[in-house]
Design a protein around this nucleic acid. Structure first.
Length: 477
DNA sequence: ATGTAC
């Protein structure tokens, strides 16, 4: 694809018309600045976006985020809104790592006071947090306990003294989706979940200590508890094998019933069924269960980070306060205005965060008047940004923004890349690294386009800058 | 992303 296939809407928006290929249900809107657009349209993710635009019942336009990259079925970095309940639902447009996301914690600890302690802090984080694909957790729960986790999300951790009330108040959806249905989750998934709660996983998943480098919106930063020169902690992870298995199980099941619904996607990983099919309801219940597992997992990891801080800094754990916790891979029923009409939609977000503008119902109370926080972590060891959603996000991207933590290569390409160079790259940037089994991160390469991504998100009017964070230490799988 | 593999 090249630029002649695109219509330029404005400085940050490019459209691929519905006529680009027969079978597309909506046009595609790529959100990207001059610097990013050519890479996006020449990469392999864009063909996946074209295929995703075939999903029946899509409304408005398929949104492609500036940090998009190649995924399975749908690319990572898209928003696809389907009319509810007349449209379709596709697990591949939500992703295998259901509710992968980010928890950001702020603190009152001055960077200058912690400089000499950073190596010890990195050691303790690594000691307290099991990493890698095969990491088994410190919790070792029964399958029936995992059903409680899947039902209650981060609230389960509150009952187990691994959360503060304020953690939940400042998490998206209070850290728990309603109408989760663990009985629709396979035995295989439940068994994996029982072993893995409280583990970080591999690939792009990481825990990072950073500091607030610069504040751009002082009032918002105060509400968020972010102050220049103070330490922060970020936890980027998801639902581990539990969510992966839920996605795989339902893609297979949807493929099996394709004939019944005359549902034939351009790619088997984009298997779909009508939203009002019983199989769709089962998937939604299982997917919400996996989302709650991920909310609980980030909460348990936040607890472990607090324990690690306590070992090194007096009162360190207690000073870590949740700023926000946001999901990147989720499907939700929401009201949106499309071509002048209010309608109920099923919004698939894959590699995209919800970003509701100021005053929108559903935003956590401390932030409802300001707009939903948008955490853009960059790759591990990269600059991160904290932003606030603005009103334009509702019309431009179904109330969504980028997810930030991207790859330069698809997983498929990365699998050919051989030995890990990631840790050397990180060390060269002066970031302390502690890693587990690097076999899963061997192909992870650091992106350096985070500032262009953030320029696009703010230029397109999805979110405004609040603060920039700089990395000090990373723990990854 | 992953009891890893188009």
């Amino acid at each position: 694809m090249d630029r002649k296939d695109l219509t330029r809407i404005d400085d940050y928006t490019w459209e691929i018309p519905q006529s680009f290929r027969e079978g597309m249900r909506v046009p595609i809107r790529i959100l990207a600045n001059e610097e990013l657009v050519d890479d996006i349209i020449t990469g392999e993710a864009i063909e996946q976006a074209v295929q995703t635009a075939h999903l029946p019942g899509l409304v408005g336009h398929l949104v492609v985020m500036p940090d998009v990259y190649s995924g399975q079925g749908a690319p990572v970095g898209i928003v696809a809104a389907s009319k509810y309940p007349a449209g379709a639902i596709a697990p591949g447009a939500i992703g295998h790592d259901i509710n992968t996301g980010v928890r950001l914690l702020g603190s009152s600890i001055k960077r200058a006071d912690a400089d000499d302690l950073m190596d010890e802090l990195a050691d303790k984080l690594h000691e307290f947090i099991p990493c890698g694909v095969d990491a088994e957790g410190s919790l070792q729960l029964s399958k029936s306990e995992i059903d409680h986790v899947a039902q209650s999300g981060a609230q389960w951790a509150l009952r187990k003294d691994m959360a503060k009330q304020d953690d939940l108040v400042r998490a998206e959806e209070g850290g728990r989706l309603n109408e989760a249905n663990p009985s629709k989750v396979s035995e295989t998934a439940r068994a994996l979940g029982a072993q893995q709660l409280g583990t970080l996983g591999g690939g792009e998943h990481f825990i990072e200590i950073s500091y607030v480098d610069e504040v751009f919106n002082r009032a918002a930063a105060i509400t968020m508890g972010l102050k220049e020169g103070r330490l922060t902690a970020q936890i980027h992870c998801g639902s581990r094998g539990y969510g992966r298995q839920v996605c795989a199980d339902y893609i297979e099941r949807f493929q099996d019933v394709a004939d019944k619904y005359d549902a034939h996607p351009p790619n088997p990983n984009l298997a779909f069924v009508p939203l009002d099919a019983s199989e769709a309801e089962d998937y939604m219940g299982a997917m919400r269960a996996a989302a709650n597992y991920a909310y609980a997992n980030r909460q348990v990891l936040a607890h472990r980070v607090r324990e690690a801080f306590d070992e090194v800094i007096e009162g360190g754990g207690d000073s870590l306060r949740t700023v926000y916790d946001v999901a990147h891979n989720l499907g939700q029923v929401e009201m949106h205005e499309v071509e002048g009409k209010h309608m109920r939609c099923y919004v698939h977000r894959k590699g995209a965060a919800r970003a509701f503008g100021p005053g929108t119902p559903g935003i956590s109370l401390p932030y409802r008047a300001l707009g939903q926080p948008v955490i853009v972590p960059g790759s591990m060891g990269e600059t991160s940004w904290v932003m606030l959603a603005t009103r334009d996000a509702m019309s431009k991207s179904f109330g969504s923004a980028c997810h930030g933590a991207g790859r330069t290569m698809s997983r498929h390409e990365a699998s050919y890349q051989g030995e890990a160079i990631l840790d050397d790259q990180l060390e060269n940037r002066g970031v302390r690294v502690r890693s587990g089994d690097t076999s899963t991160s061997g192909g992870v390469q650091l992106k350096e386009n985070i500032d262009a991504v953030v320029d696009t998100v703010s230029g397109a009017g999805l979110a405004g800058k609040v603060a920039r964070l700089k990395p000090l230490a990373v723990v990854h799988g």
